[in-house]
């Protein structure tokens, strides 16, 4: 992955009447990286991607893609982009192979070249057997894979994906993540919007969080994690009720806070990493056997909840609405 930028978004905004959907956001994407753009529904993700790809006109600001002003010279910028929208937008009546060939033709690919590439992509995406089946007969996962294949048929330098794993089964979602990593290895820059935080955590090099049309955080996964990390946390699961011992534990291990999770579970929150054996010995001395001791690390979801203030419960509901992937 190179550190040179391929995309530069500066003070980008979009207003619909009095409503500001995107409020002067700025970020850059490095060549060859997977850049995640995360936010809840209505945060401004799709509006931002639409402005970057030329489906929406910015109210202000600029988008530069590989040195091309993508607002003023949108068609030139589109020639190096691959675009995979949140809903599969291929032609239902046409089969998979013809759909791919048609998409290749829109980028000026000659017949022999696009047919060869379509065959290769059908193979790569595990769709070779379905190549002559009409698109309308494809399952959701197959539709999504073919839409991604259509987005890369012309070998774009940058691929934009809007919610690529929403509403598809676990296996297809896994395959898509794998394909995106393969594309990255071949040097394609990927911009991905999603509200599946785990997806972003697994595949993205850098992430920007958007909420209410503003970018509220931007950085690598580990940088973002650090922002909510409050030291060392360890969860203990025992054979007895640990609640009465919480106060004693806290006194005994100075500098740690004890949080009772359930009767049989407590979490020790310490400023620094502590050795486990004194804890286990102490509890053993009290006649308590510890079945499990597990280090609790903050997740990207914790970062998101912490930064945006959006409750985890609301986020879960959005995921459920979005589909079954994971």
């Amino acid at each position: 992955m190179s550190t040179t930028g391929i995309v530069s978004v500066t003070n980008l905004s979009k207003c619909y009447g009095n409503f500001t959907a995107v409020n002067g956001i700025s970020f850059s994407i490095r060549r060859g990286e997977i850049f995640g753009f995360l936010g809840p529904n209505g945060a401004g993700k799709t509006t931002t991607i639409n402005m970057m790809i030329g489906l929406a006109r910015p109210s202000g600001g600029s988008v530069e893609i590989d040195g091309i002003d993508a607002v003023k010279n949108v068609k030139k910028a589109q020639s190096i982009m691959g675009i995979v929208p949140d809903e599969s937008n291929l032609y239902d009546e046409m089969d998979g192979f013809d759909n791919l060939c048609f998409c290749g033709s829109l980028y000026g690919m000659r017949k022999a070249e696009r047919e060869q590439r379509a065959k290769a992509l059908l193979s790569q995406f595990d769709l070779a057997k379905a190549g002559k089946r009409p698109f309308k007969a494809y399952s959701k996962g197959m539709r999504r894979k073919l839409t991604i294949a259509a987005g890369i048929i012309h070998r774009p330098e940058i691929l934009f994906l809007d919610e690529p794993t929403t509403g598809i089964d676990v296996e297809s979602a896994r395959q898509i993540r794998h394909l995106l990593l393969e594309l990255k290895q071949r040097g394609t820059t990927i911009f991905i919007t999603t509200h599946y935080i785990e997806d972003a955590e697994r595949i993205c090099d850098r992430i920007a969080f958007i909420a209410g049309g503003n970018i509220v955080a931007n950085g690598t996964v580990s940088e973002l994690m650090q922002s909510v990390s409050h030291g060392y946390a360890i969860r203990l699961t025992a054979n007895q009720n640990l609640e009465p011992l919480a106060g004693d534990l806290q006194q005994h291990f100075d500098g740690c806070t004890v949080k009772v999770d359930t009767n049989h579970e407590v979490t020790l929150l310490c400023e620094e990493r502590i050795p486990l054996s004194p804890v286990l010995q102490y509890l053993d001395g009290k006649g308590i056997s510890v079945f499990e001791a597990k280090e609790i690390r903050p997740t990207l979801e914790d970062v998101f909840v912490n930064i945006t203030g959006i409750e985890a419960e609301k986020l879960k509901k959005e995921k459920e609405k979005g589909g079954v992937a994971k």
Binding site: I53, G54, L55, Q78, I83, N89, Y91, D92, C103, L106
Partner: peptide, 14 residues
Amino acid sequence: KGRSFDRLLLAPIS
């Protein structure tokens, strides 16, 4: 309605 028209709008042709 099926959004396939967006594909044409996003193609690098005038």
